[in-house]
Simulated scan of single mutants.
Amino acid sequence: MTAASNQIKSTLWENKQEYPLTTETLKMLLEHRIPLIRLKEFATPEECEMLYAQSQLLNFNAYQDVSPKIEKVGITVFEYNSISKGDYFKEVERATKLRNSITAASFNPLERIMAKFRECGAKVRIASEPSYGSYYAGLIRKIEHGTQIHIDFAPLEQSGWEVCTITAQLSWTLYLKLSPNNHGKTCIYDRLWQPSDEQYKLDSYGYSDTVIADADAIAFQPYVGDVLLFNTTNFHYVEPMHGQRVAFTSMIGLLPNGEIIFWS
């Protein structure tokens, strides 16, 4: 890690607070200078309930080789990276039509978040491959049993895909349904992934807690209708919910030319 990176890292958690989405805070989040952006009341309770109700008409599928179990509607590059790029893009049209049928009967969070980014002056689009076309974006996901400590960073995980050319990665999550028990927090550590951390990899995605020893952290409580954005190259995990925790989410990446791309 460079001296500049260390300086950014050292100032990241001086003020443990959530920030609104602005042109400046988006830049700061991409540069690891703040831990978290929250868009309060991004969607109404009625909109969230409609989208949740539509999702319950569908079959949720569990990620393969991921423990604890995580279920979702939609497809991910993560799953197809070990299969093939061609198979992923064969599924994009079907998955996109299904997503559009759900959002048409409720509302489209993906279009809304991309519009919010454009209001901040960002040039945004869905990720694409020259030989294949657009990626899929927009999972409806249940993380109710928690996760392992992990990071999400396409340059590490998706070599040979357009998304592996990004220089920074975020995720955004809109919470649709939550059991009222104040569980299911996401904990983000003041610890950026480094190549040497691969020695602590446990399985398809999880890492030993050795990587976050003595690292400072912030935990945020999800609320229905809010969107949370954070930098996924910080180690993080979700605590078990002991109930329902259903959300709409995708990845976000910054390209070297300044464009921002969305994908799942």
Rank of each mutant, 00 (worst) to 15 (best):
C120T: 13
K123C: 07
V124A: 06
V124K: 03
V124R: 09
R125A: 14
R125P: 02
A127T: 06
A127Q: 08
A127L: 01
E129C: 11
P130T: 13
P130H: 13
S131C: 09
G133W: 09
G133V: 14
S134C: 05
Y135C: 10
G138I: 06
G138E: 08
I140R: 02
I140V: 15
I140P: 03
R141Y: 00
K142N: 07
K142D: 06
I143A: 05
I143C: 07
E144Y: 04
E144V: 14
E144L: 09
G146I: 05
G146T: 04
G146A: 03
T147M: 05
Q148H: 08
I149E: 01
I149H: 02
H150V: 06
H150S: 01
H150L: 07
I151H: 03
I151E: 01
D152W: 07
D152A: 14
A154F: 02
A154K: 00
P155L: 11
L156W: 00
L156Y: 03
E157K: 05
Q158V: 03
Q158R: 01
G160M: 08
G160Y: 00
G160I: 01
C164L: 03
T165M: 01
T165F: 00
T165Y: 02
A168R: 09
L170S: 04
W172T: 14
W172V: 13
W172Q: 10
W172P: 10
L174Y: 02
Y175V: 03
Y175M: 03
L176K: 02
L176I: 03
L176A: 01
L176G: 05
L178R: 13
S179R: 11
S179T: 15
P180K: 07
P180Y: 08
P180D: 15
N181I: 14
N181E: 10
N182R: 06
H183P: 05
G184T: 14
Y189I: 04
D190K: 09
W193T: 06
W193K: 04
W193G: 01
P195L: 07
P195G: 01
S196Y: 08
E198D: 09
Q199P: 02
Q199C: 07
K201E: 00
K201I: 00
S204F: 10
S204N: 12
G206A: 13
Y207P: 14
D209E: 11
D209T: 13
D209K: 08
T210Y: 11
T210E: 13
T210P: 06
V211K: 05
A213I: 13
A213L: 13
A213F: 04
D214A: 12
D214N: 15
A215C: 08
D216H: 07
D216R: 15
D216F: 10
A217E: 10
A217T: 07
A219K: 12
F220D: 11
F220N: 10
F220P: 09
Q221H: 12
P222I: 12
P222M: 08
P222H: 07
Y223S: 10
V224C: 05
